[in-house]
Design a protein around this nucleic acid. Sequence first.
DNA 1: GGGCAGCTTCTTGTATACAAAATATCGCCA
DNA 2: TGGCGATATTTTGTATACAAGAAGCTGCCC
Lengths: 244, 244
Amino acid sequence: MNNAWHTEMLAEGRVGDRRIGDRDIVDKVRRAVLMQRLPPGTKLPEVTLGEVFGVSRSVVRKALTRLASEHVIDQRPNQVARVRAPSIEETRETFDARRLVEGEVVALLAGRLPAEPMAALAEQVRGEVAAFERGDEPARIEHSLTLHHLLAEHSPNRVLGAMLTDLVLRTSIVIALYKRAGLASCYLAGDHSRLLAHLEAGDAEAARGDIHDHLNGLEALLDLSPREARIDLKSILGRAPEQA
Amino acid sequence: MNNAWHTEMLAEGRVGDRRIGDRDIVDKVRRAVLMQRLPPGTKLPEVTLGEVFGVSRSVVRKALTRLASEHVIDQRPNQVARVRAPSIEETRETFDARRLVEGEVVALLAGRLPAEPMAALAEQVRGEVAAFERGDEPARIEHSLTLHHLLAEHSPNRVLGAMLTDLVLRTSIVIALYKRAGLASCYLAGDHSRLLAHLEAGDAEAARGDIHDHLNGLEALLDLSPREARIDLKSILGRAPEQA
DNA sequence: GGGCAGCTTCTTGTATACAAAATATCGCCA
DNA sequence: TGGCGATATTTTGTATACAAGAAGCTGCCC
């Protein structure tokens, strides 16, 4: 069994002296999936995770249940949990859902953002641009994620905000999965700053349009051609890509 | 401690010879909350539930985690799980979110429903009308819930469908919670059949409008006046309504 | 050489024991 | 009588042991 990721996961940075809880495991696994250190189909046995994090299966189990409810892993009865591989179909549907929800959120947000959160958003945009220009893709992704996360957090409608948080995560996963091979970065210059300008100006419909354009652009950067042979067969019929 | 609901819950109907699992517990508790047999704030200790269902805390624990992710209960660290009491604010936001999502789902569905699911929808409408006319409110709720559940299930976009399932549940809970005292039923005659007609005719925007009207009507039947003293203080400062 | 049966091993499902935290109770004192 | 504090009880958090099921493997047979 490929056990390279065991050490990788711990190297991610230890939690302080605090006792490690299920939340820490959820965060670390989610992050690892997002960063493609845990490719789709990877098996996540409970004992192994427990050894890695130094806790018993009880804690791991709770973490896995949460990850499953976040759609990060697949958990089937009497079977080892695996990193989920959303289908092309589901990818399209996730983008559609996010267009609807995030569009509404930014429309609600337009002109209603206090100065402080607005500054935080601008800060992320600056960070993203800088990271892109120096070719630091992980940092760029981090800033982009934080930006959309902030939008979700400040949503006047918290129910929609929570849904958006979920959708941002799922979208990021499929972007990492289906990004065209040659592409170095899924960056669309100007999209985010244009959105912020419209938010500040209070133009709800323009902001909604920005989100639509942004997500359309992102989706266009993916390789969503219907050759099913690649991901689906592997996860449905085949085994995990151990030595792939 | 008021332990009347222990027997009520079992009386709901035993699972066959099958071993009782976490899913059964989730279903039963969810249903009991929906039917207001488990009022908001009710404590749900793990051992008690375990005794009621004849399983150990492990199974109960998993069930509680799932119920928390469905927003049916509140689970805070080192504290007994309680039936959730959504605030008035959250109630409004839930309705807004559902208007957005269910509106989109029926718009996508318009004109694209095969005959068989369409017939199933019509069947629920007939059942709802009949139940209303004979004054059988539980049956009417059941049919109404099934109807919206079917819409969610047949959503072409399954991501939105899953979100709608969640929103229908949450809306039902708050309707039960905030229904005006004197009101016997939250029934809006004709709404559902009108929606079905537009779905069959393939008029997406009319169907979306039907959903908006329907949910607006429902929301108007609730008592959402901002006297915070009723629910919020009780759950924030007070104790569970044991003998209330 | 390919396929299948039976067995071994690994992994999850469930129950239970103990530790830690929160809650409730009782008694004390102003 | 009312508030406050220590103690006792309840309840959750975590670890572990055992049972049940699935996956993998060996060796046999065709």
